[in-house]
Each structure stands twice: as structure tokens, then as C-alpha cells.
Amino acid sequence: MSAFTDLRALPRRRTRSLAADSDTRGITSEFDRRQPLVGLLRRAVHVGLLLFLVVAALGPILWLAKSAITPTQDTLRQPMALWPHGLDLANLKTAWVDLHLSLYFKNTMIIALGSWAIQMLVAVTGGYALAILRPAFGRVIYGAVMMTMFVPVVVLLVPLYLTILDLPVTHASLINTYWGAFLPAGASAFNVALVKRFFDNLPREVIEAARVDGAGDFRLFFYVVLPMSRPVLGVVSVFAVLAAWKDFIWPLVVLPDPAKQPLSVRLPNLAKVTELDVFLAALLISTAIPIAFFVVFQRFFLRGGLDGAVKG
């Protein structure tokens, strides 16, 4: 993950960060804010929204954290009680060991990392070819790639499943293999567009200079373009990992073997056969990693509209 740590060394971007406290004015002016009634009302609205967000967004997660270590009977009888009558920390261990959560967790990791690798490979090489190498037929290919963005996912579900079931020419089947989960994730027009637009905006002089110095396609790619691309690689990476972690319908279809399924596909089945407190512990474990991931990489997610990455 060293690619991310170096980001701080990059020059400040022109676009204002959403998270940063803005130094310029917004809807209300200094004058508005100094009026007692308006100021009070404004503060009330802000605090009200904060309270609402804490209750609505954080509330369910806090409730889950509490109930995961509360005995089932307590949760059933008084779901909103602040303090449980007894702690049941063993739930987490029971879920991890007895429900084989460790296995499904590992599967989820494999799917997330594999999908990430394929998405990166496709987007970066494709973006490089289209933006920097610019073959004569590049516009046609880019058009065909972008077109897929307008095809609703629903159209692809069944034919994609049948393609995975019986690949053209080789007649191999990717059902119950992780390749069946990785490869279709790579066909993301969004990623290609993002990376291509970033490469389009790289300084041409640097690329021309490397060319003059005799850099071939590969050398240019590895030593010039990739080192300049950390911001966009970071954005594509965090969204790819999170999307793979959240995915449900595709792994459900392509991995019918329970021993290969990720958490999100296994959990609904476990719900039917598991005691409530242990099941809630399983839900907590399944949520903890994406939340931690999000908190660590929040600036990638919260930059909004991906502007920063595209403008570079």
C-alpha cells in the first residue's frame, strides 16, 4: 500500500476538498451569521442534521455492535435497552469458528483482491493504449467500451452467466472458480474512462521527452506514466475493492458452492440456522472491515465526483 502513503507528498490540488473547513463563504454570509436569530437558527439546523446523521447512520452500527455481544433473549425482549444484562463476548468467537466465518472471510478477501487486480490491469493498460499510444482505431474501441456503460446490468446477468458456464471456443466453465468472479469485474467502462481521462491530462512534454530519449512503449509505461498515476490508481483501487466486497448477485450466481462463497452470499443462508446473537456477531464482523477500510481511505471516497483524481 505504499502507493497511497506517498500521496501526501504531491502538490496540493486546486479543487477544494469537501472535508476541509472552507475558508471562503457559503450560502450564509458573515452578516447573516451575526444576526442573533439567524445565527441561532442556523446553528440549530446544523446540530439537528448532525444528530440525525449520528442516529440514522451510526445508530444501526452501534446497535449491531451492542447486540452482537448481548445474549439473544435480551435482544429479543428489549432490543433498545442501553445496557445488556450480561455480556456474551464469546459470540464473536463462535461466529468466527463455528459458522466458518473465517473461511467466507478469506473467500471475500480473495474475490476483492482478484477483482481489484483484474480491474487495475484492464483499466491501466487499456487507458495507456488509448490515451498515450493512440492507435488509429482507438476511438472506435473507446466508443465500444463507453457504450457498455449505457447497458443496464440487468441485460447482462443471464447471458454473462451462460458465457461463464461455457466459454466460447474452449468450452471451459468458470462456474465455481474465482476467475468467474474476477474477470467480469474487469469489464468496467467507468474505470477505463477514469484512467484514460487522467492519462490524457498528463503533460505531453514529459512523454515526448521520454520518447526522444528513446523510451519504448513498455519503458514509457513503467517508468514514466505509472509513477505519475498514483492518484487515479488510488481512486480506482478503493472503489474496486469496496465494490467487490459489497457485491451480491454476481457471486451468488457464479459461485454455487458454499465453500467458495463470500460473506455477503453466505450470510442470508446462515440467518436461517443460527442463533440470533451469534448471527448478529457475524454481521458485525462482516461490516467491520469495510468500515475500517472506508475510514482509512475516506478522502478517496469523499472527494466527490472524482474530480481531484481526474484533474490530477
Binding site: 469496496l242 466486497w245 459489497k246 451480491f248 455477503s264 462482516s286 461490516t287 469495510p290
Partner: peptide
């Protein structure tokens, strides 16, 4: 809430 897996 966006980062919580939808199935969960």
C-alpha cells in the same frame, strides 16, 4: 451506510 455491504 454506503460502505456497509448491502446484504448485511
Amino acid at each position: 451506510p454506503v460502505v456497509i455491504p448491502p446484504a448485511v
